[in-house]
């Protein structure tokens, strides 16, 4: 797979990066080669899979709900709601400060 130098120039503009013409040329070759290895993902059986954890809520949590049905890992902390807003723990000025 190849990625043109104009593609790299478009991307570095998006990323606010200045690169020398030599680096653009080298990255064009290297990034193209790296992206070529991603082609294997086309064979993955993912048709029925969600891009996010299936244990996470598929619709935004609404007011007056406390969602506690998260699965493992980082999602075990319940999300608390105050009306239509998420409750964000106070950090500045709290006892923990």
């Amino acid at each position: 797979m190849s990625i043109s130098e104009s593609d790299i120039n478009r991307v570095i503009k998006l990323a606010h990066l200045s690169l020398s013409p030599e680096t653009v040329s080298r990255f064009s070759e290297q990034v193209g080669s790296i992206m070529g290895h991603m082609a294997v993902l086309s064979d993955a059986p993912i048709a029925d899979l969600s891009p996010t954890d299936p244990n996470s809520p598929s619709t935004p949590v609404q007011a007056d709900k406390v969602y506690t049905g998260f699965g493992d890992c980082a999602s075990v902390n319940p999300v608390y709601m105050d009306g239509p807003y998420f409750v964000v723990p106070k950090i500045a000025g709290s006892d923990a400060e």
Partner: peptide, 30 residues
Amino acid sequence: VKRRIVIGTYVLSSGYYDAYYLKAQKVRQL
């Protein structure tokens, strides 16, 4: 670091997001 910023910006950019980032997130679930 610059190479990875370029890759990351590329896979998130318009026209490539579904082909790379969205697909990768599904494979991660797999």
